[in-house]
Amino acid sequence: MSRIAQARTAAAQLTGLATDGAQAIGGHVIEVDLACGGTVVAKRHDEPSAVLAEVASLEWLAEPDGPPVPQVRGHDHEWLIMDQVEPGRSSAPAAEDLGRRLAALHATGAPTFGAAPPGGPVDAWIGLAPMRNDTGEDWPAWFAEHRIAPYVRSAVDAGSLEADDAAVLDEVCAKLDSLAGQRESPSRLHGDLWNGNVLWAADGRAWLIDPAAHGGHRESDLAMLALFGCAHLDRVLAAYDEAVPLADGWRERVPLHQLFPLLVHTVLFGGGYARSAVAAARAALRVA
């Protein structure tokens, strides 16, 4: 059975609705047309825990005042079926709305740093990379132990990161307490907030997709949003800061918070991401 046929079967079984066609929109993601009208998105995961992690993430992020996320229609160990969001264009008003809503989402908080969404697995995923949601009460120690060190080890073992470069990242871990800025309570993070996971929709809003939600530092989401560029980012950040002011020095800490996604990319893709991670680490150390 073709992947498209599998998606139609899964959508019908998990929603209880007949389907009328389907089309792949990239990778393991397929849009399925419903016979009664409307469209759902069928997303296939190779790992059952990845399905559970994304379902739990979407449900945890679905806060009334936060950015909108697709509604889950059904899932099993392999397929996730959710509402389709009609794409539109970015705009300054939508960006400002995103900033305010992201601030509201973060403010809903999390029990601890590293906390998985309720019902979500400890062994979760960020994209195609494993992400373990071990918890901690102190952000610098938690970030060093669970968001930097494991990926440095994996990158070194894979030959993507040289030992001398790994030493720079180890130095960041050793100095994180002084690099972290003022202490903040855990925020409810999207967790994988690069610009590709911001969907500018036809309804004039910015929707969030493909989360790797967990408890973390709110500056991490904002730093990742800046990593690969985001439309109207200055409007997003200004609206966020107006709604819930950011701590002094947050701009200088952007490279520090970008270390996690850069190391994930180093593990997955190697190449220039290792150089970018080391450059970010050196930039973070210069702030000390």
Rank of each mutant, 00 (worst) to 15 (best):
Q23K: 13
A24V: 03
I25M: 06
G26A: 10
G26V: 11
G27N: 14
G27M: 13
G27C: 14
G27D: 14
H28A: 15
H28E: 14
E31Q: 13
E31Y: 03
E31H: 05
V32C: 06
V32M: 07
D33F: 00
D33N: 10
L34E: 07
A35W: 07
A35P: 08
C36P: 04
G37N: 04
G37Q: 01
G38F: 10
G38H: 09
V40H: 05
V40F: 03
A42M: 00
A42I: 00
A42Q: 00
K43E: 09
K43P: 05
K43I: 05
R44P: 00
H45Q: 12
H45N: 13
H45V: 08
D46P: 13
D46W: 13
D46H: 15
E47F: 12
E47Q: 14
E47W: 05
P48E: 12
S49F: 03
S49V: 08
A50S: 05
A50Q: 07
V51M: 05
V51Q: 01
L52E: 03
A53Y: 03
A53W: 01
E54L: 11
E54Q: 12
A56N: 05
A56E: 05
A56R: 08
A56T: 07
S57E: 03
S57D: 08
E59L: 12
E59Y: 06
W60V: 07
W60D: 07
A62R: 02
A62N: 08
A62Y: 06
A62I: 03
A62G: 02
A62K: 02
E63P: 01
E63A: 10
P64V: 10
P64Y: 09
P64L: 08
P64E: 09
P64I: 13
D65A: 15
G66D: 06
G66A: 06
G66H: 00
G66S: 01
P67L: 02
P67T: 07
P68H: 03
P68M: 06
V69G: 10
P70K: 06
Q71C: 01
Q71K: 14
V72T: 08
V72W: 02
R73C: 05
R73S: 09
R73T: 07
G74K: 09
G74C: 03
H75Q: 10
D76N: 15
H77S: 15
H77Q: 15
H77D: 15
E78N: 13
E78D: 13
E78R: 13
E78F: 07
W79A: 08
L80S: 02
M82W: 12
M82T: 04
D83W: 04
D83G: 11
Q84S: 15
Q84N: 14
V85D: 00
V85W: 01
V85A: 09
V85H: 00
E86K: 12
E86P: 09
E86W: 13
P87E: 03
P87I: 11
